[in-house]
Every structure is written in structure tokens, then in C-alpha cells.
């Protein structure tokens, strides 16, 4: 009885130390992977064609879903915010409330989560199946650096495309909000823009751009790392795709929290 419970505690301690070690190894491997990305990105020859191809695939293919989601969220958010403002007789604040919410928080986060799901899983599955079917090995022995050709191009492309997609998402979200306000409060476009943008500062825009770059990089690195290092076998591909999405979403939320703290420090400094 006694020895059994003692054993259990021992096992518990043991697994915790394994978990801790795995976490540390994970951080270490990620750091190495990121350093390698920087090194290979800066070293010629540059894979311009592949980067453009990836930018196109990531950017254009994500437009429909980002359009729809952002537009609907713009409408819904406006609708849901109205009743509480009516209570204070402050519906004229709607445009600025919506602009602040969309530009500061919603557009970067929504775009990042959509891309984590769509592009992250895609990268994880694509590179994972290339690993499993030995295409990455084939590339390596035909004297092409597969890391440079597959990983750096994808990370760079999504990091570059993310700010553009966030800006696009913000525009469509604001459009949705405007249509709803115009329909209910008969606000003109000019007034909407004037009220809305009077509250947006340079800091807000900078912060959103920084956020989107960080999120894009996160999705790219997570997807590539999971796919590039996928386990052998078809199960490895599914695991890689799944882990890309789950891990990048998790990291994005943590980054969001940290970045908001830092921005607020500057905002009120």
C-alpha cells in the first residue's frame, strides 16, 4: 500500500521531468529552426519564382474565406454592440467603436486564425507528405537545398502576405459595419469614415502591422516545422497537419496577449 503510493508519486515526478525536458527540447529545436530560416533566407541564390508562386497561392486562395468572415463579423459585431450604446443614447459612437475593435483586435486575430487553419494545415500536410514519400530526400540528392526551397519560401511568403490580408480583412469588416450602421442610423459614408478614423492612431496601425507579421511568421514556422519533421508513415502527415493548426493557434493567442500588453505600455506612457 505504502510502497505503491510511493511509486505513484515517483512516476508522477518522473513524467513531469520528462514533460519539462520535452518542452525545453521543443524550444531549442524551434530556435534552431528559426535561425536556419534566417540564415537560408539571406543566403543566395534566392528562390524568387517559388516565393511569388507561394505568395499567390497563400494570398489569392485565402481571399474568399477572409472576405466572407470579415464582412459578416463586421455586421454582427455592429448589431451586437448597438443595444448597449442605445441605453446610453450613444449610438453616434458606433463608428469609432467598430473601427477601433476591427483595426486593433478583430482583423489581425481573425485573419491569423483563418490562415492558421487554412494555410497552416496546408503547409503541414504538404511538407509532411513530401517528407513521408521521400520527395524531400529526392530534392536533397538532386543538389537542391530542400529547406531553402520549401521552408524559407513558405515562411517568407506568408509573413509578407499576412499584413496585406489583415488590411483587406479590416476594410471588409468596416464595410460590413458601415452597411449596418447606414441601414439603421442612416449615417453617411463620410461621417462614418470621419468618426471611425478619428480614433485610430498611428500606434494602432503600427501595432496591427507588427501583429500580423508576427502571426504570419508563427503560422509559417509552425506549419513548416511540423511538416518538414513529420514522422514516417501516413499517420505522420495527419499529425503534422493537425499539430500545425493547434500549435500555431495556441501560440498566436499567447503572442496576442503579450503584444497587447506591450502596446498598452506605449499607449499610456
Amino acid at each position: 500500500m505504502n510502497s505503491a503510493s510511493g511509486n505513484e508519486i515517483l512516476q508522477h515526478k518522473f513524467s513531469f521531468s520528462i514533460w519539462f525536458r520535452q518542452l525545453f527540447v521543443g524550444f531549442y529545436n524551434t530556435a534552431i529552426f528559426i535561425l536556419k530560416i534566417f540564415k537560408e533566407t539571406l543566403r543566395p541564390p534566392f528562390e524568387f519564382r517559388e516565393i511569388i508562386k507561394q505568395c499567390y497561392a497563400i494570398g489569392v486562395n485565402s481571399l474568399p474565406i477572409i472576405s466572407m468572415t470579415s464582412f459578416i463579423i463586421g455586421i454582427v459585431f455592429t448589431k451586437q454592440s448597438r443595444p448597449s450604446l442605445i441605453e446610453f443614447g450613444a449610438t453616434s459612437w458606433l463608428p469609432s467603436l467598430i473601427s477601433i475593435a476591427i483595426v486593433r483586435a478583430l482583423a489581425p486575430l481573425i485573419t491569423a486564425l483563418i490562415l492558421a487553419g487554412k494555410v497552416g494545415s496546408n503547409i503541414g500536410a504538404e511538407l509532411g507528405s513530401m517528407r513521408v514519400t521521400e520527395q524531400i530526400d529526392a530534392m536533397e540528392i538532386s543538389s537542391t537545398n530542400p529547406f531553402k526551397f520549401l521552408v524559407t519560401t513558405r515562411v517568407l511568403s506568408i509573413t509578407l502576405m499576412m499584413p496585406l490580408l489583415v488590411a483587406y480583412s479590416a476594410v471588409l469588416g468596416l464595410l460590413g459595419g458601415y452597411l449596418n450602421i447606414h441601414h439603421n442610423e442612416l449615417t453617411t459614408f463620410k461621417t462614418f469614415i470621419q468618426n471611425g478614423f478619428s480614433q485610430i492612431t498611428f500606434l494602432d496601425l503600427t501595432a496591427s502591422i507588427i501583429k500580423s507579421v508576427v502571426y504570419g511568421f508563427t503560422i509559417g514556422v509552425t506549419g513548416c516545422m511540423k511538416g518538414y519533421n513529420a514522422d514516417m508513415g501516413t499517420v505522420g502527415v495527419g499529425k503534422a497537419a493537425n499539430a500545425s493548426v493547434v500549435n500555431s493557434m495556441f501560440i498566436i493567442f499567447i503572442e496576442e496577449m503579450v503584444i497587447v500588453q506591450i502596446i498598452n505600455y506605449f499607449r499610456f506612457a
Binding site: 513530401m130 514519400t133 521521400e134 520527395q135 540528392i141 543538389s143
Partner: peptide, 20 residues
């Protein structure tokens, strides 16, 4: 190694054609 690999052809078990 890259230089040597160019002199060696390698047929993979699953052919490993680039599917993209």
C-alpha cells in the same frame, strides 16, 4: 557532397516524384 550526388542517380522506392 552535392557535387558527388550529381554523379549518382537514385530511384526511390515510391518513385518520390514531386507531386506539385
Amino acid at each position: 557532397l552535392q557535387h558527388l550526388r550529381l554523379k549518382i542517380g537514385f530511384l526511390f522506392q515510391g518513385s518520390a516524384l514531386y507531386d506539385g
